[in-house]
Design a binder for these strands. Structure first.
Lengths: 252, 252
DNA sequence: ATAGTTTTGTTAAAAAATAACAAAGTTTTT
DNA sequence: AAAAACTTTGTTATTTTTTAACAAAACTAT
């Protein structure tokens, strides 16, 4: 006779989601207290998830998450998705890409096809997103990890960039100053890294949604002249788009 | 001002797991009933998971799943927890600690109190676990990210270790050879890093559960002489424990 | 066999979730 | 601009779920 824990896990996996009452009906041979204790043990082993009044199979959660990939809860998700898919179509396979931090860049990482890219990044979330695919290689810049945005920064990070070759840098900005034509972000350490990456990269792609235009943040890390390609969403002002194109920058 | 739902989701994502009480403390402007209702809404959108007494970030579940995938199914969770809590009690606050990869080390990272430690690691899962706390600083070794275990490896990683000071190294092993007294792991690149870390560390603590004894894996990275303290679980053979203590190694 | 350990069931107490309803705040309609 | 309709929020009471404590049963290892 099989171990009860195992049978409970199988039952939950099969159902996806069970209430304690369903478990009681299925496993009449033991008390509900024992079933509770069993659930606790299974949860400690990460085999299931306890929820109020019952349990959930871990796989159910994974599936729900996949189905919900279009994430409604992120601000401007639609715009970011639009930018990400446009940017991905520009990238050629098997290139060596630096991917910046920030949510737009994360969308880009998700949209990146499962091909033999070589991805460099200082964003933990980006690294994790890409390594979950099958083919691309990922290198992570080392350094001090920041608490709020899960980015590595610092001098070791800068040294690392010195040593690597970047074909394409996929960058983001927190703000864009229309008058000076400069891209800005909120932290000096972040600006240092962005600047160095842009310097080393053969081609610089800037992802920018309309909400960033004329948003002011303290540190400039690049001017329009520094970048080669810009990818924007439909909320991006048409006239600004034209004046940027006149400077010889491709705008998608 | 940001939508409260969004702020709650961010708070949960950052913490990984929150109790309703933590939410109440964070969002004093609304009643706990409102917070409950918010959690229900977020759960309906698959943005979070409700658990008894609080909520869980979906990403946490995903990560737990990944982590288990890397090791085998964590059936020794209890033992690992036992080792982790013993090891944590040895550590003094505000020290500079290197934390190795592997599930036992991850349990250690979780158990680490929220104090002003300086944590170094090449394990993504460890880095994320620690940075979710409030106080400790985290530095991540850069390098190539491995797909199966989310560890960074490679020469840049080794260079990084050269530059840093390590007071305490909290190490794990995949196997321990009783006869030769050597600790082993399954990958050369991993062994390189472990070796270098042990060399640089003032104090080396080895976490080892009984199931590792006489399990053979190809690469040796340390001998008993190299370590100072060993933390084991109750399934660890008593006679072996004694013979190790006779060599001047503290065994907890 | 028997002492020690683990597992299980029962009960009581605590904590959490729900439901119901009133109050405050929004939006829509006129 | 006022009123009606609707939504969100807070309070309280009720129900349900979870935890804790302890004793009985079952299992282990001498």
């Amino acid at each position: 006779m099989k171990d009860r824990l195992l049978r409970i896990k199988e039952f939950i996996d099969k159902k996806g989601k069970v209430s304690l009452h369903e478990l009681e009906a299925e496993f009449k041979e033991v008390s509900s207290m024992t079933l509770r204790r069993d659930l606790t043990k299974l949860e400690e082993e990460n085999a299931i998830l306890k929820i109020p009044g019952g349990a959930l199979s871990v796989d159910t959660v994974l599936r729900a998450k996949e189905a919900d990939f279009a994430e409604r809860i992120v601000y401007n998700a639609q715009e970011k998705l639009e930018i990400a898919s446009k940017a991905v179509s520009i990238i050629e396979p098997s290139s060596c890409i630096f991917i910046d931090g920030g949510s737009t860049a994360t969308y880009f990482a998700r949209a990146l096809p499962d091909e033999n890219f070589y991805v460099l990044t200082n964003a933990l979330v980006v690294a994790e997103t890409v390594i979950r695919k099958e083919k691309p290689k990922v290198a992570l810049l080392g350094g001090d990890l920041r608490r709020n945005d899960f980015l590595t920064v610092g001098s070791t990070c800068l040294d690392f960039i010195d040593k690597i070759n970047i074909q394409i840098a996929v960058m983001t900005a927190t703000g864009f100053n229309k008058d000076s034509g400069s891209f800005t972000c909120g932290m000096q350490t972040e600006a240092d890294i962005k600047r160095k990456v842009i310097e080393k990269a053969d081609t610089v792609i800037m992802l920018l949604d309309g909400s960033k235009v004329n948003k002011k943040t303290p540190y400039s890390f690049a001017k329009l002249d520094d970048i080669d390609i810009m990818v924007v969403d439909k909320s991006f002002p048409e006239d600004l788009k034209k004046s940027i194109e006149e400077k010889g920058i491709k705008v998608y």
